[in-house]
Write a protein that binds this DNA or RNA. Structure first.
Lengths: 339, 339
DNA sequence: AACGCTAATCTAAACGTTTCGAACGTGTCA
DNA sequence: TGACACGTTCGAAACGTTTAGATTAGCGTT
């Protein structure tokens, strides 16, 4: 900018005023400055600007795994929304690890991000302190966090799983395996409650040996399914509370020589583009990823626009059961209905 | 830092020296400073640091679509690699649009990213100028760019498709449909050549009506497949040069009432986690995503470590044909082999 | 006792912006 | 003719660091 000012024989203050429109500058100087900018190929340095202004027009976004298609989709939507608003987004993957997450958040804060969208991991960490002690707005995505009172957009997980399991029950299934992620994050908690309530509402017992938990990965789903299938009285259906894990479930079924849905029915959380192209077409609980991403972005953009003092807003969206053909009706359903 | 210095009754220079280890500071002052840092909860401001140092420890990464599983995986690997090296990554999706890409790159450059990894889109744009006129290192990912002479890591697309199509020919297929993305990016170009050469090597004619192109999306694959299947003399196999488009292909086959591989064989580019769990298990060309991501990261990290003057390096990796069961042998194959 | 050497610390300028308040020229009004 | 207001431009401080070079203190040598 100094060079531009010299070339145009004006002060830097005038150049700045013109660039920002903060004061009127005469046509003559305007012309000289614009010429100089073109000649020199000047680009304003956003870092210096950020230092002075205290704002970077950059936000931080952390997710556990970007390869989980749910997060991929949401990240995509969020990225687009902030792009439209002239913000850059720094993406971090926390790998389901609390220490990593804390480190990443610190990194982002050091870089003075204007806001944070966090699909949290683990329990607590520095998140609570940030919400309370700094004035960087944060919105929680997908997962609430105990003791952290801030904007959030989540799914009604309990209801979604309740509906899915109830559907299985209506098909005549009585022993329904349930595969969950680690229970320290809110969605897993809610989903588990949905499962138990659906069984209870139907007057069915909750058999603890049918509940298995893993760490969100394909291999965890595989192992859990193997255990379920080698049970003395094995389940006739399995619900997987997480998308990557259902791949493991399908592989385990294949490897053990069974087939879906003939021998065992499968339903899972999270829809993906391939759900209805292959056989079996998976019955899933679809999350409204577009809405989730947009709402999260809107909540944060609203804070960034200055609305700092509004009380925390929690948005709860509804999942949708996509019934396809990976779950088959059992003979028992007829008796049960007629009984 | 000023507050820390005051609280510890030292100068800011001393605090800085301690923090950066650029000079030895006495145990006594060290202790006072560390105490002050703890008391105040001081965090060094990375923006101010960047301004002074001329480096942000942040890189920019642009991809056409993050929902394309190939890019999802590569982004994940790259993100991890830079995370380990203490860099943040700004992610941009260019949506296969050149103007968007140019805008994003400008945005990143304004923010003084130390380097750029670009899975480019369209033709040229400001990329060429950046490589030539600035000294921000850029590495091209997946797609070369005419006239832009810089580090790059790409696949041997020609060879990969040659092998895949040759495989189909060996199975007895003679009329092989080919669905490609827009041909202005290098991989699509190379893949197309691989297709043509495979046919020619086998002494088969290249029928132009069997070649369809679309814009990388599922819907494009769907339409292209519909056209191929309504051909008077329809192909017995289809190769899709892009992953999202193959979903469209599968849907079209389903919607038209055919089945794969009984009525039509399908193979495609890019592997994904679900490839071998459902029916049919898709035969694909798997890219070594882990290696691609790591190599790209390494090339850039090497430049960032100071190796600016080495000549541009082009890494060409090999794809791997994952033969599963979405392609069936035609009766003809037996004759052809025995002939 | 004067000197030089080393180690520890400090002063102040610089990075590239924004912005406050001052200065300047010009026209208007009493 | 002087006072005043207005519109335009500028000087300089500030944002929070890093760093070159100056300063100081302590210590061993001669």
């Amino acid at each position: 900018m100094l060079h531009v000012a010299e070339a145009a024989r004006v002060s830097v203050a005038t150049v700045s005023a013109l660039l920002n429109g903060t004061a009127t500058v005469s046509p003559e100087l305007t012309q000289r400055i614009e010429q100089a900018i073109r000649d020199i190929g000047y680009k304003r340095n956003a870092i210096a600007r950020s230092l002075k202004m205290g704002t970077t027009r950059t936000i931080g976004l952390t997710v556990p795994h970007i390869t989980n298609p749910f997060f991929t989709d949401v990240v995509s939507v969020i990225q687009q929304a902030f792009d439209r608003a002239g913000y850059a987004v720094m993406l971090c993957c926390t790998d389901e690890d609390l220490n990593t997450q804390d480190e990443q958040i610190r990194l982002l804060l050091d870089r003075m991000v204007d806001g944070l969208i966090v699909a949290r991991v683990g329990d607590g960490g520095i998140l609570k302190g940030i919400v309370e002690d700094t004035n960087v707005p944060v919105v929680l995505l997908d997962r609430l966090c105990e003791g952290v009172d801030t904007d959030a957009v989540v799914l009604d997980n309990q209801r979604a799983v309740f509906d899915a399991v109830t559907y299985l029950i209506h098909l005549g299934h009585r022993r329904i395996g349930y595969i969950t992620g680690t229970s320290d994050i809110s969605p897993m908690h809610g989903r588990m409650i949905g499962y138990r309530e659906a069984l209870q509402a139907a007057g069915l017992p909750v058999a603890e040996e049918l509940i298995r938990s893993g760490n969100f990965h394909e291999i965890d789903g595989y192992n859990a399914t193997m255990q379920l299938l080698s049970l003395h009285d094995r389940p006739s259906a399995i619900f997987s509370a997480n998308n990557p894990m259902v791949i493991g479930t399908m592989k385990a079924i294949r490897d053990i020589g069974l087939s879906c849905p003939e021998d065992i029915s499968v339903a899972c959380f999270d829809d993906f583009p391939w759900s209805d192209v292959f056989v079996p077409q998976l019955t899933t609980v679809a999350q409204p990823v577009q809405a989730i991403g947009e709402q999260a972005a809107n909540l944060l953009l609203d804070r960034l626009a200055g609305n700092r003092d509004a009380p925390p807003r929690k948005l709860v969206l509804k999942g949708r059961l996509m019934i396809r053909n990976s779950c088959r009706p059992l003979g028992a359903v007829v008796q049960s209905v007629s009984a």
